[in-house]
């Protein structure tokens, strides 16, 4: 392990010149029923430990909610899974075979991990439909992209997703002109277009009305099973409405894990998080 770690630090992606790093197999293998393994992960920013020896396992097909106070490391954890941030120590595997720490963001996306950001980021200058087209699972190399034309099947797929997210009427509208909630939906739609094995959804209902929230809950629940969904959320009502299993993060590591009721009755959780006004 020691030598491997050394190798890893010398071969860090953000340090360039690592052309030679061999890529591990890119076929997802979930024969053991677990889709994501995060083991012993630590990240330090300028002396501040954002993630501290985090261990987290996600089963294939489950819908997991992750909660925790601000600064608990939720977004940083997402950054590590999607390749935006590299941990100082630890391992992150997608299924049995894919070492996430060796892949770049696009590679991670292409093996089947999709992410919705906390702040909705859609391509503002593109139409709703173009946003979905860009996100669609397809050959994403340069030349195929230049000559790509939408096939009837792809059109149908885009239409289907448009319907799911309720934006049929806005398909030709510039994404930048959508409301905040609509952008959230569009982003979820983009996630769907990617057809990923694992969806990471960061605060999906921020800025949504209650009706929209309910629809989102329905959508996420319907996705679970065929996809694995990890949701980070602050809104406890929303979490309660969708979650089977909840993980509480605190100061960069897992504080408690279980059903919403179990978690809510956990003394440590009450102390650090639910003890305030937020939980009832």
């Amino acid at each position: 392990m020691k030598t491997l770690d050394t190798l890893r630090t010398t071969m860090r992606r953000d340090q360039v010149w690592e052309i030679m790093v061999p890529k591990t197999g890119l076929e997802l293998d979930i024969s053991h029923g677990t889709i994501l393994y995060l083991e012993d992960i630590s990240v330090t920013f300028d002396g501040f430990r954002a993630i501290d020896r985090l261990n987290l396992y996600i089963d294939a097909g489950e819908l997991r909610c992750i909660i925790g106070p601000n600064g608990a490391g939720k977004t940083t954890m997402m950054d590590i899974i999607t390749g935006k941030t590299r941990p100082d120590t630890g391992t992150a595997w997608f299924g049995q075979t894919i070492d996430l720490l060796r892949l770049s963001e696009p590679e991670i996306a292409s093996v089947g991990i999709g992410r919705k950001f906390q702040k909705p980021t859609v391509f503002e200058h593109h139409s709703v439909m173009e946003n979905l087209e860009l996100a669609m699972a397809a050959d994403k190399r340069v030349w195929p992209t230049l000559v790509a034309r939408l096939t009837p099947e792809q059109h149908a797929r885009i239409d289907a997703v448009l319907e799911t997210i309720g934006l049929q009427a806005h398909r030709a509208r510039r994404a930048g002109a959508l409301s905040h909630g609509q952008k959230q939906w569009l982003e979820i739609g983009m996630l769907l277009m990617q057809d990923p094995h694992l969806l990471l959804v960061d605060e999906p209902v921020a800025g949504m009305t209650h009706q929209e929230m309910d629809r989102t809950a329905e959508l996420l629940k319907s996705l679970a099973g065929r996809h694995t969904v990890v949701v980070v959320e602050h809104d406890m009502d929303f979490v309660r409405s969708i979650a089977n299993k909840v993980t509480v993060l605190h100061q960069g590591s897992v504080l408690a894990e279980g059903t919403m009721d179990e978690v809510q009755n956990d003394a440590r959780v009450i102390e650090v998080y639910l003890g305030g006004d937020e939980g009832h």
Partner: peptide, 17 residues
């Protein structure tokens, strides 16, 4: 700059990311 885009003494931290 290719090797270390943030220079000799980069500003560290979450914000800089």
């Amino acid at each position: 700059i290719q090797k270390r885009p943030r220079g000799l003494f980069p500003q560290k931290g979450r914000a800089a990311e």
